[in-house]
Computed example of a mutant assay.
Amino acid sequence: MHTIWKGSVSFGLVHVPVKLYAATEDKEISLHMLHRNCHVSIKNQRYCPICNVSVEHEDIVKGYPIDTNQYVTFEKDELEKIQGVSSKRINIIDFIKEDQIDLMFSQKAYFLGPDTHGNNAYNLFLKALETSKRLAVGRLTLRSNTKLCVMRALDGKCIQLATMHYANEIRKVNSVPNLSDNTSVDDTQLKLALQIIKGMAGKTDLSTLSNPEQERLQAAIQSKIVGQHFSYKQVQEDEMVIDLLEALQQSVSINKSNSKKQSQASLVKGNRKEKLG
């Protein structure tokens, strides 16, 4: 597993040497941009339209726009000084309960593992988080950006770290168009909606779900590799029911039908096991 960041977790006078690893990976199938005539991959070049030249990495500085074509510029060493010593340290600022975290603030998940010589301190920190049932809140400088982060014990053997948005990065809910202060609904419709929720509740195992578009694209790629024709089936959306009450009633009926089929399938499966036994 590739190390993204290396440093230490600091709380009190304790320093825990750690390494950061991505906990998730993008499974989207990457399609390259090719020149239609020769199928050579198109190159993206850093180019200056004023000087009419390609720009090398060492000739690039970062700038903040203050007016049209006017920037305040920063060299790499200036930005490193602004980040300060915390760039290689996760400074813990609080220990909170899990229900104090709003999922709205969640950003990206990572695994935080021990460094080569940091097992004792790492295991102590892991056990302390697990025993206290608390999340550690800290700041982590990652790719030139100081992130808010939380850490928790995961399965008693690893620390999970999640970067979080700062409060000023969360948009106000009032900016959502067409919201109304009047949220009263019809009692009959609410009863039907609750029936649908009850019928669908607890039946999905997230670990079994896959991306259907990704699977179709992978099948198409394999067909083209072996020179076979791939049949493109148009995915049909369910017909939209305009009347809300009718839509609710149809949904309840579909749920009951699906539940009956699942019960029959489970019964058949159970009978087969008894015969085999």
Rank of each mutant, 00 (worst) to 15 (best):
Leu179Pro: 05
Val61His: 11
Ile42Gly: 09
Ser41Pro: 14
Tyr64Asn: 05
Lys261Gly: 07
Asn119Thr: 03
Ile60Asn: 06
Asp181Ala: 09
Asn44Cys: 12
Lys81Met: 10
Ile66Asn: 08
Leu179Val: 10
Lys6Ile: 06
Ile159Ala: 01
Leu154Met: 05
Asn69Trp: 01
Leu194Gly: 01
Gly227Met: 01
Lys133Asp: 07
Phe105Gly: 00
Asp94Met: 01
Gly227Cys: 03
Arg46Cys: 10
Lys19Leu: 12
Asn91Tyr: 03
Pro212Thr: 03
Glu80Lys: 11
Leu179Thr: 11
Gln250Phe: 06
Ser263Asn: 12
Leu179Met: 12
Asp99His: 03
Gly270Lys: 14
Glu274Ala: 14
Met151Thr: 03
Glu274Arg: 13
Glu25Tyr: 11
Leu13Asp: 07
Ser144His: 03
Gly156Lys: 00
Val53Asn: 09
Ile50Phe: 08
Thr24Asn: 12
Glu80His: 08
Val14Leu: 15
Ala128Glu: 01
Val268Glu: 13
Ala193Pro: 04
Tyr232Phe: 11
Gly118Thr: 01
Ile66Pro: 06
Asp94Cys: 02
Asn168Gly: 02
Lys260Gly: 09
Leu194Glu: 03
Ala219Gln: 13
Asn44Tyr: 13
Ser231Glu: 14
Lys256Tyr: 11
Val72Gln: 03
Ser30Ala: 15
Pro17Cys: 09
Lys172His: 10
Thr141Val: 10
Ser8Lys: 10
Asn174Glu: 15
Lys198Ile: 06
His2Ala: 15
Gly270Leu: 14
Ala265Pro: 09
Val150Lys: 03
Gln218Pro: 10
Lys233Ser: 12
Lys203Leu: 15
Tyr71Val: 08
Lys81Ser: 09
Gly270His: 13
Gln189Thr: 10
Ser86Glu: 07
Ile221His: 03
Phe11Cys: 13
Leu103Arg: 07
Thr183Ser: 08
Asp181Tyr: 00
Ile96Pro: 03
Lys19Val: 12
Leu245Ile: 09
Phe105Met: 04
Asn182Val: 05
Asn69Met: 08
Arg46Ile: 11
Asn258Gly: 10
Val252Arg: 07
Leu79Trp: 01
Arg139Trp: 03
Leu142Trp: 00
Ser30Tyr: 12
Thr141Asn: 05
Ile254Lys: 11
Leu245Thr: 14
Ser175Lys: 08
Arg89Cys: 11
Leu20Asn: 08
Ala22Arg: 08
Gln262Pro: 01
Leu206Pro: 08
Ser251Val: 05
Lys88Gly: 14
Phe74Gln: 05
Lys203Gln: 14
Gly202Tyr: 02
Asn120Thr: 13
Arg272Met: 15
Leu126Cys: 02
Glu28Ile: 12
Met104Glu: 03
Phe11Trp: 11
Ala153Lys: 00
Leu124Gly: 01
Val55Trp: 03
Glu130Trp: 01
Ser180Trp: 00
Phe230Ser: 07
Gln189Glu: 14
Gln250Trp: 00
Tyr110Val: 01
Phe74Asn: 04
Cys38Met: 12
Val53Arg: 15
Asp77Cys: 08
Leu31Asn: 04
Tyr47Ser: 13
Glu58Val: 10
Pro65Asn: 04
Lys273Met: 14
Tyr64Thr: 08
Gln236Leu: 15
